[in-house]
Design a protein around this nucleic acid. Structure first.
Length: 496
RNA sequence: GGCCCGUUGGUCAAGCGGCCUAAGACACCGCCCUUUCACGGCGGUAACGCGGGUUCGAAUCCCGCACGGGUCACCA
């Protein structure tokens, strides 16, 4: 059987979009499933729209997601170059062949002329298609105009016939009427190829067997097929993936918040979670597999036939849920590696501290990771383990510090903790439980104020775990500090 | 507007003519666990866009309509 070769062909006009990422991922899945190759090709023929760091951004996002390519930028391969801007000779040669064979022709119509023509057609209620008037230009006339220095475009001479049938693995056979197409442009007046043309020439030259791309390209496909036919190329298999839509069902754009892979990274998503989430958008694992699954685990059962035809709306909540699951299940050291940058960024840790307190960082992450959904939250939830408490949460102050006798109670709690030899969660808990029993109070009466004293917050991981991680010294200090604060706080209150 | 694709709960989705008085997951609600918040466990609310056919039988096939999306560039 022929080798499977697929490609992902982004245009470097910005960051890698979540939709593009999904397309790349599905191409990857298909390539791996069929022991084929994934080619990465940069479609940079329109210099006006290029963005500086875009290629580097896209490559790093793909890598971050775990999508590796077999041929392409920074990788090479036998079918390069992999930048369309470096493949001009291919396009020129193919266009020349078509013109010589009479399958394409020069068109000298100016943009103004075309606009005028289009306007007339609009008025008459006709489809806005090119009339084809340069089709019949005599050879000597063409030569004459070229000599005058006019810059023509090259148009494909679309043959007469009823319909163009496109076979799509996901959608079946799609039929387009011939009268939907005019003699469209394949080479622009600046000599660069138009998208459909470059795409066909490259896909053929790179021996692409399956073109897997977003649904927005389905309507382009018949045009491309016409080019394949004119060039006498074998037509690859097509598969058009449904779109990913914003929550309001409109096309995804910046105004919908996070839509690029790098933004998800910024928010504190783990690459595995994003890849997992994207896999679920259009693909459904078997019941046994479950939904927490890596692309690598999907490979063996992946098939394009089973990919959903329906446009999907992306749901951040589910991504975050997955992310939370990955955070709790992640290898602890790897998690630290991912989380430390967030701690640094928030100023919770300095680079030096991060270097010197690795064990401590691990113990902190171990206790907080169960209850957060992103690395940002993880950092926020870790703050009081690394930095002094800056204040007590407002609503907790009145509730837990406002009760009579709390200061004394905390002072006694502090005493007990001071006597704990080995400062483990079990031992601190026993010390506290004993005190609670002796005083015949409810656990919460002591536990809640203590939590507020130690963390400054009303919610935290289990109190005794927190104590164990914090260590005796810090716990005693913070309790002492809290006792002072409460005495002051209540004195102030009495005055008013 | 023409053409193309699509339409199962709020979201992702299973389903490919009888197993469907429609699975699972997220979200939501309740209960349990519990020192708080999560986690976890148990339970619950919630869907085949509408109208015609075909068939003994339709979420599944066909047609029409509605709605959503895509596309009609010297953008990709």
């Amino acid at each position: 059987m022929e080798e499977v070769r697929v490609r992902f062909a982004p245009s470097p006009t910005g960051y890698l979009h979540i939709g593009g990422a999904r397309t790349a991922l599905f191409n990857w899945l298909f390539a791996r499933r069929n022991s084929g190759k994934l080619v990465l090709r940069i479609e940079d023929t329109d210099s006006d729209r290029l963005k500086e760091d875009s290629v580097a951004q896209i490559l790093s996002s793909l890598r971050w997601l775990g999508v590796d390519w077999d041929e392409g930028p920074e990788k090479g391969g036998d079918f390069g170059p992999y930048y369309q801007s470096q493949r001009q000779e291919f396009y020129t040669a193919a266009a020349k062949t078509l013109v010589e064979e009479g399958k394409a022709y020069y068109c000298f119509c100016s943009e103004e002329e075309l606009a005028k023509e289009r306007e007339e057609r609009r008025r008459e209620g006709l489809p806005l298609l090119y009339s084809g008037k340069c089709r019949s230009l005599a050879a000597n006339e063409v030569r004459e105009r070229l000599r005058q220095g006019l810059k023509p475009v090259i148009r494909l001479k679309v043959p007469n016939r009823d319909r163009v049938l496109v076979k799509d693995i996901i959608r079946g056979t799609v039929s387009f009427a011939r009268d939907q197409f005019d003699d469209f442009i394949i080479v622009k007046s600046n000599g660069l190829p138009a998208y459909n043309f470059a795409c066909v020439v490259d896909d053929h030259a790179m021996q692409i067997s399956h073109v897997i791309r977003a649904e927005e390209h389905l309507s382009n496909t018949p045009k491309q097929q016409l080019i394949y036919e004119a060039l006498g190329y074998e037509i690859p298999q097509f598969a058009h993936l449904s779109m990913i839509l914003a929550p309001d069902r409109s096309k995804l754009s910046k105004r919908h918040g996070a839509t690029s892979v790098s933004e998800f990274k910024e928010m504190g998503c783990l690459p595995e979670a994003v890849a997992n989430y994207l896999t679920l958008l259009g693909w459904s694992p078997t019941e046994e597999q479950g939904e927490i699954i890596s692309p690598a685990e999907v490979v063996s059962s992946f098939s394009l036939e089973k990919v959903s035809k329906t446009a999907a709306i992306y749901d951040l909540q589910k991504l975050f849920w997955l992310n939370g699951r990955y955070i709790t299940d992640y290898d602890l050291e790897k998690l630290a590696f991912q989380a430390v940058p967030f701690l640094l960024r928030e100023g919770i840790l300095s680079p030096l501290e991060a270097e010197q307190n690795q064990e401590y960082i691990l113990s902190v992450l171990r206790t907080v990771r169960d209850r957060v959904k992103t690395l940002r939250e993880l950092a926020e939830a870790s703050r009081y383990f690394f930095r002094d408490i800056e204040g007590y949460e407002e609503k907790g102050q009145e509730k837990y510090f406002g009760r009579p006798g709390v200061a004394d109670l905390l002072a006694r709690g502090r005493e007990r903790l001071a006597g704990v030899e080995v400062f483990t969660a079990e031992n601190t808990e026993r010390a506290y439980r004993d005190l609670i029993a002796e005083l015949a109070i409810k656990g919460g009466q002591l536990i809640h104020p203590t939590r507020l004293a130690l963390t400054g917050r009303t919610v935290s991981p289990g109190l005794f775990e927190v104590m164990a991680v914090l260590g005796r010294e810090r716990c005693l200090d913070r309790l002492e500090q809290a006792v002072k604060f409460i005495r002051l706080y209540n004195a102030e209150k009495e005055k008013t």
